[in-house]
Nucleic acid binder design. Structure first.
Lengths: 342, 342
DNA sequence: CTGAAAGCGCTTACAG
DNA sequence: CTGAAAGCGCTTACAG
C-alpha cells in the first residue's frame, strides 16, 4: 500500500541500496544519480518505514518523558493538589526543541513512590532511546532500576549523583527572593517552605540565611513554616503563622501554589496585598500571572530546563560514556504587583 | 544483545513460531507447551521487539496527539496568552485511559493556521495508528488534509462534520451558568464571550437567551462583549463594559482566563467580588480553584473528553468504516465563592 | 560510484 | 498441535 524503497528504486532506475544511501546522505553517490533518486522520492511521496529502519539500526527515534506523580489519580486542579506546572513547561521546552530533530516524544505518568512499583511501561517495553524523568518524587531504588536498564536518562528538576540532571539553583533562588524583600524595606519576613524532609529544604534555608546575613538580620525559627506544595497547605500554614501573632510585613512562599493559598487566607482576614503585607512566590507558573493581584515570583526557567535536558539526553545517546552532566540553572526575579516598597 | 524470540524458543525447546503463537494468545498451543514457553519468557525477561512486530503487522501501537496552537512560540504563562488548560486535562484523560492498553502516546504542538502549513510531523512521517486533534484552531483544509492521509482521527473540543469528535455542550453550559445567576437573584448580567467569529459564538448566545427567556428577560446587545480567551483581553472587555456605565450585578465570562482578567479589573476598581458583583467562569481550569476568591465556574469535563476520545479513536482503528461519532458532553456547574445570592 | 546479498526480529499462512 | 519458510522494508558491509 504505502510506497517503499523498492518503488523509489524502480522509479529512479537504481537499486534500493542506492536509494538508502541517498536517504542517509552518503556522499558516495554521484550527484546525477542522487538528483534522480531525490526526484523519485518527491514524486512518489516516499516516507521511509520507521519500523524497518529501526529493525536494522536499533535506533527508535523516540524519546520518553516520565512524569513522576505522587499517586495515580489526577488531582491537578484542586486547591489541595500540587499543580503540575513543572511538567507542562518542561514538556514545552522539550518538545519545542525536538522540532529540530526527527525524534518523537512518548510520555507517561508514573508513580515511583510505591516500593513495589516496577518501571514505567515506556522503559519496561523498551520503547525509547532515552528518557526524561521529570520531577523529584523518586527514591534511590527507582533510579537504580532505571540505570540497570541501561537506557540514557536525564532527571529534570532535581540533581542526583551519578546520573545526568538539570535543576534550578534553589539556594540562589531563595537568596534572590529574600534579598528583594530586604531591598524593598521589609524587615519581618516569614517563610513558608515545602516539606521539611525534602532534599532541597536545607538549600533553601541556606539561601535565605545568606541574604539575611548580608543584611545583618538573624533567621528566627518561628518565622519559618513547612508545608506541602499545595494551595490548601499554604493557606493552613499562613493561618498558623498569622494566629501565632508573629509580626510580619512580607511572606516568601516556596512555590506559587503555597503563595496563592497564603493570599487567600490573607484575603479572608481582610489583609491587603501588597499594602499591608507583601508576598512573593517561587516557580513562575500560570497561577502567578493570573492571580489578583499579579504575583511577584522567582522564575526557575522550567522551559529552559526542558531544552537543556533535551540537549543533554541527545548527547548522552550519542556518547554513552561521557562524563555525567549536572546542570544548575540560575533563577531570576519576576517583579509584578505583590511587593510594595516600605 | 537483547533477548529475542529465538532465545526463548531454544530455552523452551520449541520453534519461534510456537513462541509467537503463545505471545499472541493463540489457543492452538497445548497447555503444557504454553506453560513451558511462558516460563522461558519469564526466565529470560523477554520483551518482544516492537519494530519487528510492527514490520509484519503494520500496527505501531502508538497514538498521536496534536495540539493546535495559535502560533509556534509558547506563551502559555502570560496574562495575554491563552492558558493551555484544554491540552493538559485532555492529555491526562487520554493517557490515564491508555494505561490499560499497550499503546503509547506521541505528542506534538502544531499551528494549523498558516494556510501553507503542512501536516504535523507525526502524520507526515506516519508514526501513529491514529491521532487526537486537540483544540479548535483549524480551518477546513487542515481537516481535509488529515483525512486524505487516511489515518483515524478524532477532534477533541469541537465538533466537525464528517469526522469523529467529542466536545462540550456549549449551549447547555451557557444556559446553566446564566440560569444559576438568575436563580441567585441577578437581574443585570453582562456577558464576556470569546471571539465573535468563533464557530461556537452562536451556540453560546442561544444558551444565554434560553435561560433569559425562561426568566422573561431580554438579551440586550449592550450587555454582550466579545474578546479573546486571555486574561488581558478579559480585563480590557471588563473595562469597556464598566466604563460604559452599564448597570450590572453579575459577569459571565466565557472562559476562566477572561474571568480572571475581569476580576483583576474589578479589583483595581475596588469593586468587591462577590459582594458588589458576582462572577462566573467557564472551563474549570487550574485558574479557577486558585483564584482569590475561588471562582464559580462551569466544568466542561475536559478529562472525560480525553477518555471518550480515546475510546472513540480505538474503536475507529479497529472498525475503520463505522459511522462517524459526534459526542457532546454535558457540562456541570461548580459552585464556589464568586456568586452571591441577591 | 552502484548493486546483490545478508540480516534485523517478528508474524502468518501452510504443511504435516 | 508444532515447525519450516517466506516476507515485512530497511541498512550495511562487500564486491566489482
Amino acid at each position: 500500500m504505502a510506497v517503499t524503497i523498492m518503488d523509489v528504486a524502480k522509479e529512479a532506475n537504481v537499486s534500493k541500496s542506492t536509494v538508502s544511501l541517498v536517504m542517509n546522505n552518503s556522499d558516495s553517490v554521484k550527484l546525477e544519480t542522487r538528483i534522480r533518486v531525490l526526484e523519485a522520492i518527491r514524486k512518489l511521496g516516499y516516507v521511509p518505514n520507521m519500523a524497518a529502519r529501526e529493525l536494522t539500526t536499533k535506533i527508535k527515534h523516540i524519546l520518553g518523558l516520565v512524569f513522576l506523580t505522587d499517586n495515580t489519580t489526577n488531582k491537578s486542579y484542586r486547591f489541595d493538589a500540587v499543580t503540575e506546572t513543572l511538567l507542562y513547561d518542561t514538556f514545552n521546552g522539550i518538545s519545542s526543541g525536538m522540532k529540530q530533530t526527527d525524534f518523537g516524544l512518548l510520555s507517561e505518568r508514573f508513580s515511583a513512590l510505591d516500593a513495589n512499583a516496577e518501571l514505567p511501561s515506556l522503559l519496561k517495553n523498551n520503547r525509547v532511546d532515552g528518557v526524561f524523568i521529570v520531577g523529584g518524587l523518586f527514591g534511590d531504588e527507582f533510579i537504580k532500576r532505571v540505570q540497570e536498564r541501561n537506557i540514557p536518562a536525564v532527571i529534570v528538576g532535581r540533581n542526583y549523583p551519578g546520573i545526568d540532571s538539570v535543576a534550578p539553583d534553589v539556594l540562589d533562588a531563595m537568596y534572590k527572593g529574600t534579598r528583594h524583600l530586604l531591598e524593598t524595606g521589609h524587615r519581618h519576613i516569614v517563610f513558608i517552605l515545602g516539606p521539611e524532609t525534602s532534599p532541597v529544604a536545607q538549600k533553601k534555608l541556606e539561601g535565605i540565611r545568606k541574604a539575611l546575613d548580608e543584611a545583618g538580620l538573624p533567621l528566627r525559627a518561628d518565622t519559618v513554616k513547612y508545608c506541602d506544595y499545595t494551595g490548601a497547605s499554604g493557606y493552613k500554614a499562613m493561618q498558623v503563622l498569622w494566629e501565632s501573632g508573629a509580626r510580619m510585613d512580607a511572606v516568601f512562599a516556596a512555590n506559587d501554589g503555597i503563595a496563592v493559598g497564603a493570599m487567600r487566607y490573607l484575603y479572608e482576614r481582610k489583609v491587603r496585598i501588597p499594602e499591608d503585607i507583601s508576598i512573593i512566590g517561587y516557580e513562575q507558573s500560570v497561577l502567578t500571572e493570573h492571580s489578583v493581584p499579579a504575583l511577584t515570583t522567582i522564575d526557575i526557567n522550567k522551559e529552559r530546563m526542558g531544552e537543556e535536558a533535551l540537549r543533554i539526553l541527545l548527547n548522552r545517546i550519542s556518547r554513552r560514556k561521557a562524563k555525567t552532566v549536572r546542570l544548575t540553572l540560575a533563577p531570576s526575579l519576576v517583579v509584578r504587583d505583590t511587593v510594595k516598597k516600605r
